[in-house]
């Protein structure tokens, strides 16, 4: 009963094949990291799941149903989405950023306030930051706000596109720890795109390896580390882990 499944999915841009014939089922309630060299189609794969990219061929099912492309906003409200560089809205305060979707869903004021404080505590953000604007926060703090915003409606699926990419090593470490903590408390189905294999191994239970738009290998971290499916996977792992 997988929440996310791709069936023979291809995405073509002109002559270029960003995704090629992908058959893939994401395991429920675990974190799957999508890795591969740059240009391998990682981001495209992620955006196929929330309909930002529509496949040229094939079917994408989310919550066990094929995506209805006429009703994307409703689907997306049930999928948390966070990107590199946070994508926080500069004209909204921290609180307004976090609660935008809740306000649009007409939550009452008390409920919104409680949820904001709950989320901010969860990611170790001082509640006093609620009225600040994003530009007044450090990169790590902004990233935490981005996560809060993605979590506000408590989605069962999380799509994270290089969310920790732009952070310094110490901050990244902290947030990664918090991320694991969150996942422990309440397991969600998470798809994490990262160019950093170490991060993938640390945060994810399962890996998807892509090369030039094709699925090369899919399995648990252990399976793939112990039994790489091809020379490409072996050399990709070696080059990444030796650095």
């Amino acid at each position: 009963m997988a929440q996310i499944a791709l069936e023979k999915v291809s995405r073509v841009y002109g002559d270029e094949k960003a995704l090629q014939d992908i058959d893939l089922t994401f395991a429920d309630d675990v974190t799957t990291a999508v890795v591969g060299p740059s240009g391998s189609g990682k981001s495209t794969l992620l955006q196929v799941i929330n309909g930002l990219v529509r496949p040229s061929h094939g079917t994408v099912s989310v919550f066990r149903e094929p995506i209805d492309y006429g009703r994307l906003p409703e689907l997306r409200l049930r999928i948390g989405y966070a990107v590199q560089g946070t994508g926080l809205f500069p004209h909204l305060t921290v609180e307004e950023n976090i609660t935008l979707l809740a306000r649009l869903a007409k939550w009452d004021v008390e409920q919104i306030k409680a949820r904001t404080e709950e989320l901010m505590r969860l990611v170790n953000l001082p509640v006093s930051f609620a009225q600040r604007y994003p530009h007044e926060l450090s990169g790590g703090q902004q990233q935490r706000v981005g996560l809060c915003r993605a979590m506000v409606l408590n989605p069962r699926i999380f799509l994270l596109d290089e969310p920790f990419g732009a952070l310094d090593p110490i901050t990244r470490n902290e947030i990664q720890r918090e991320f694991l903590h969150l996942q422990q408390m309440e397991a969600r189905t998470i798809v994490l795109v990262t160019h950093d294999l170490r991060e993938a191994l640390k945060l994810a239970q399962r890996l998807v390896v892509l090369d030039r738009g094709s699925l090369v290998q899919h399995g648990t971290c252990k399976e793939i580390l112990e039994d790489p499916a091809s020379g490409f996977v072996r050399s990709f792992f070696q080059s990444q882990l030796e650095q």
């Binding site: 906003p73 997306r76 409200l77 990107v83 560089g85």
Partner: peptide, 16 residues
Amino acid sequence: PVLKRVSVGMGLTAWQ
């Protein structure tokens, strides 16, 4: 463009 992508991806309608 990142803000545009995020606002679409988080589930806002065109009007929102």
